[in-house]
Computed example of a mutant assay.
Amino acid sequence: MFNLSYKAQRTVILVGFLIIPVALLLVLSYLPALSLVYYSFTDWTGVGWNMHWVGFDNYKEIFTRPDIFSAFKVNAYYFVGGLIQTALALFFAVILSGKLKGKNVFRAILFLPYVLHSVATVIMFKNVYHMEYGSLNIFLGAIGLDTLQQSWLGNSHLVNFSLAFISMWKFMGLSMIIFIGALQSIPGDMYESARIDGANSWQQFRYLTLPSIKSVLQLQLILTLTGALAAFEIPYVMMLGANGTSTFVIQTVDMAFKFQKAGLASAMGVVLMLIVLIVIMIQRKLLPGGED
């Protein structure tokens, strides 16, 4: 190798460093994705390798069964909750980016829920929402709001709101940290110039802060959308999809492992991926600066 030219040595080193991660990417990401597409055209049960080509039958079944697409109504709760979470995260990021005493402590407190494992979070909130000894109902009773005590997980009209709140509580800290990083990249002299020109805090936020973090806001909306469509851990661990809490991903998992229709589940996975791509493309076209 020492007899090679500098350009050849550079090429060998680059190829040597890249070949392993690229190979892992192909084997662990792209090959399974291609296999998923192939299985979606078969009647594979997920057991063994006995499968038959069925063409577009799985996709026809998906689009002719209202019960499959009705799961997106549940995903909508997580999407709306994600939008509220993004707004709250931006609010706290703006406050904790200013001159506030002990702001690092508050940042750590708000970020802590994201560090907790999802299963631990769900177990904790089971003790919050429990009808008899749950801390939420105990708190409502202590302040004289007994009429608001509910079976938060047993009431089909409230259960999805309760689960969406858990998702908001868990992921708001991550969104806040992303926003704080974006806010810190804005030069301070821009705010100084705005204050000299007589701009108040709201005007600075509207005409300076928001345009400066536009790309981060778009990223957050994409993460909110994909997170809502991929909602699985919290409703599955808490309710196993019961009481009207089954999301599209839960239905896909049940289709594959409970009903042993891996071919149909693969088609559902492909449809979900296409929906995400289409919505992201529409979002990039509609939002200001989305075509940049």
Rank of each mutant, 00 (worst) to 15 (best):
M1Q: 05
M1F: 09
F2E: 13
N3R: 04
L4Q: 08
K7R: 10
Q9Y: 03
Q9A: 08
T11N: 12
I20D: 03
P21G: 14
V22E: 03
L28M: 11
L28T: 06
S29W: 02
S29C: 05
Y30A: 13
L31H: 01
S35H: 04
L36M: 13
Y38S: 13
F41S: 10
T42R: 05
D43P: 01
G48T: 06
W53Q: 07
D57P: 01
K60R: 09
E61W: 00
I62S: 08
F63C: 09
I68Y: 13
S70G: 01
A76W: 02
Y77A: 03
Y78N: 02
F79M: 04
F79I: 03
G81H: 00
G82I: 07
L83A: 12
T86P: 00
T86D: 09
T86A: 15
A87P: 00
A87M: 10
L90Y: 06
F92H: 04
A93Q: 04
A93V: 02
I95L: 15
G98D: 05
F106K: 01
A108Q: 02
I109P: 00
P113Y: 14
Y114D: 12
S118H: 03
V119W: 10
K126I: 07
K126C: 07
K126D: 09
N127R: 01
V128C: 07
M131V: 12
Y133C: 02
S135G: 06
N137S: 09
I138R: 04
G141R: 10
G141N: 14
G144Q: 11
G144S: 11
Q149L: 02
Q150H: 13
S151G: 08
G154Y: 03
N155M: 06
S156F: 02
L163P: 02
F165T: 06
I166H: 05
S167G: 06
M168E: 07
K170E: 12
G173N: 04
I180Q: 11
I186Y: 12
P187S: 15
G188T: 15
D189L: 06
M190S: 11
Y191V: 11
A194T: 04
A194S: 12
R195A: 15
I196A: 09
D197S: 11
G198I: 08
G198R: 02
G198V: 08
N200K: 00
W202R: 01
F205S: 07
Y207F: 13
L208R: 01
L210H: 00
S212N: 12
S215R: 05
V216E: 12
Q218V: 09
Q220M: 15
Q220H: 12
L221K: 01
L221G: 15
I222Y: 04
L223D: 08
T226P: 00
T226A: 13
G227C: 02
F232D: 09
E233V: 03
I234N: 08
Y236N: 14
Y236Q: 13
V237F: 14
M239C: 06
L240E: 14
L240C: 02
Q251N: 14
M255R: 05
A256Q: 09
K258Q: 14
F259K: 08
F259S: 15
Q260T: 14
A262T: 10
G263P: 07
A265C: 12
G269H: 08
I275W: 07
V279I: 15
I280Q: 13
M281V: 14
I282V: 15
I282S: 03
Q283Y: 13
R284H: 11
R284D: 15
L287W: 06
E291L: 13
D292F: 04
